[in-house]
Design a protein around this nucleic acid. Structure first.
Lengths: 366, 366
DNA sequence: ATGAAAGCGCTAACAA
DNA sequence: TTGTTAGCGCTTTCAT
């Protein structure tokens, strides 16, 4: 029987035609024909499977080299019902935070033969839904999601189909049990606050991101909790609510400074990177100095330049570790699939990692 | 005839079995069976193709919804010999420079139905080769490559198979005609130098990255060329050769400062971001001030914090535009494939984009 | 040790 | 308008 591919090959030979995308693309069948063996034999040789006579194996291996055979992963995927691909959706690929996480994931899944498809949702819920749909269609074996859609239904599709999902950075509001890897955001705030309190600050303002999100909510909890630990009353007027944008940080800081007469504070804790930059600019614009007039602790601050003066003391997340832990959890789940015993005992896991303080010069003793 | 899938379904019903990864995963066949129509009819309805009686179409569409049918892109890819996927290999996903480019690419290919697989080579030639192999196996429809392997053979595989490849940032040393999108690096240096010369500087030092690479080489050409334009003799002793790392920038700057007595200069032009940071630190460490003692122009400097003082005047690349232009070229090539006429006239294109100067406070009039 | 053949889910040429 | 069927490239069972 003559296949379409055969026809193409013949045409190429006869007329020197190059048919788009198929030039020299050898298949198992092509190799088999050339060697007068069956496809299955070639397949076995390629995959080092089953028994193949050493002589045959050599002959095949040789031919594979000669004709530059490259296995077609698409066909393999269709057959094996596994694409060896992991989808990762993040809000912004330009943020070092996510870049590091991706590197961490890659570091552990890559040796296991998995490839990562990264999708940038651009902080848009619509895009996130689109990306989820697309990754599902591409039949990724697993998913990592830094969601901006807290109440997303779309991700259930994966859960329903028993495709492992690991949430990072933020938890969605859904009923199902889920896996997640993130820092302990309550603890993060406590670390920052304890540092300030240790420097004798007692009137500490805070700029919070969206409290809809676990990140924002937990960081606020930590702030309050640390104050209570130190027997300092919580003054709601010292709490400013923003989002995660720089200009919001600027605005919040301005608002706090506007009423610093009535509601004084000597230190401020800003709970996201971009808001931190905004807050610092607001302070500078008022002619106030850090840390002489106000001590400041930021969050997630990455100063790649190393040139910001004064250096900003900041809460940091172990991004790389978040990545590798996510990768490990992913691999564990992937290995569990199809293994009835371990699947029954598989509990969902929330892995909480430790944030840490990077101390520079933006805080001083009161 | 009873297929394996049928068996699985039956087992599920009989025993409540969940067979890994196949739960509820409806196929065209399943839908067809439920409606007592043929797969092709369902297929036609799904793809809005050919003629389907309106009544049937509605019935099918309804069923697709009801059973949550999601097309299997893997199967489609195998059939259509096109994965609707574009591979992108970059040296470091954490660099904003590449992040922006990826966003730009995504912006234009995504509406055309393409998905991007990003691979981080970690600046390693070995990884780059691995990634190329993997992307080829996954049969990406096209490739974008910011190569670190100037003499790579592996990429020829794509070219040979008529898979569009677009190089960005750097050109490899190969004989084939290739497509590329990058800035005019000669012009970039000229812009920087003209700025300094316009401020009356005549003794201008330069720190060059690897001249093996087109980026380094061209930037050096531009430096010399701008001097000649202004009738300033080139003094080789003012040229320091580094790589693209921060510590090398530091070292080079130190070396230049060490002999500033014999070979004086009033300004320095540093040709990469990280080297710029290193150079600034070297200057600071010597107790010299920018721009009072030395004027400085950097390259690719991204100060996300906006807090570096003085602000660094820098050559910038239009990253986003590099991305969109790359995307457009990609789409053009993809559309040309299989279209004999346009393919014959298809010329390889090097798209040179304009760099620009971002002027801040690190240069002053001499 | 090797081969024949079925089938993964889908599309499309051809037939009815 | 709808159905039948072959085949995309591969793996795997079953037969030889």
């Amino acid at each position: 029987m003559i296949t379409a591919n055969d026809c193409r090959k013949r045409l190429q030979n006869l007329w020197g035609w190059e048919t788009a995308g198929m030039v020299n693309s050898n298949t198992l069948k092509d190799i088999a024909k050339k060697l007068n063996v069956s496809v299955s034999t070639v397949s076995r040789a390629v995959n080092n499977k089953s028994y193949v006579k050493e002589e045959t194996r050599q002959k095949v291996l040789q031919a594979l080299k000669e004709y530059h055979y490259v296995p077609n992963e698409i066909a393999r995927s269709l057959k094996s019902q596994s694409t060896k691909t992991i989808g990762v959706i993040i809000p912004d690929i330009c943020e070092m935070f996510f870049g590091q996480i991706i590197k961490g994931i890659d570091e552990v899944v890559s040796p296991e033969g998995y490839t990562i498809i990264v999708s940038d949702s651009g902080e848009s819920k619509t895009n996130e839904a689109r990306d989820l749909e697309m990754l599902f269609q591409k039949r990724v074996d697993a998913l990592v999601l830094a969601t901006v859609e807290l109440k997303g239904k779309k991700v259930l599709q994966f859960l329903d189909h028993d495709i492992p999902v690991v949430f990072i950075d933020n938890l969605p509001v859904i009923e199902q049990e889920i896996d997640a890897v993130m820092i302990d955001n309550v603890e993060a705030s406590k670390i920052a606050m304890r540092h300030l309190i240790g420097l004798n600050h007692r009137e500490i303002a805070v700029i919070i991101g969206s409290i809809e999100e676990t990140t924002g909510y937990d960081r606020m909890l930590g702030y309050k909790s640390a104050l209570r630990e130190a027997d300092i009353p919580v003054d709601e007027r010292l709490i400013a609510y923003g989002n995660y944008k720089e200009n919001k940080g600027y605005e919040c800081m301005c608002a706090l400074l506007d009423r610093i007469g009535e509601v004084p504070f000597t230190a401020v804790y800003v709970t996201s990177e971009m808001m931190t930059f905004g807050a610092i600019k607001a302070i500078n614009d008022r002619g106030l100095r850090i840390p002489e007039d106000i001590s400041l602790i930021g969050f997630d601050v990455h100063d790649k330049t190393g040139l910001v003066v004064p250096g900003i003391t900041t809460v940091r997340q172990p991004e790389s570790l978040i990545g590798t832990k996510t990768g490990e959890l992913l691999i564990k789940r992937l290995k569990q699939k199809g293994n009835k015993k371990s699947r029954q005992t598989a509990k969902c896991r929330k892995i909480l990692l430790d944030p840490y303080l990077e101390i520079k010069q933006s805080c001083r003793k009161k």
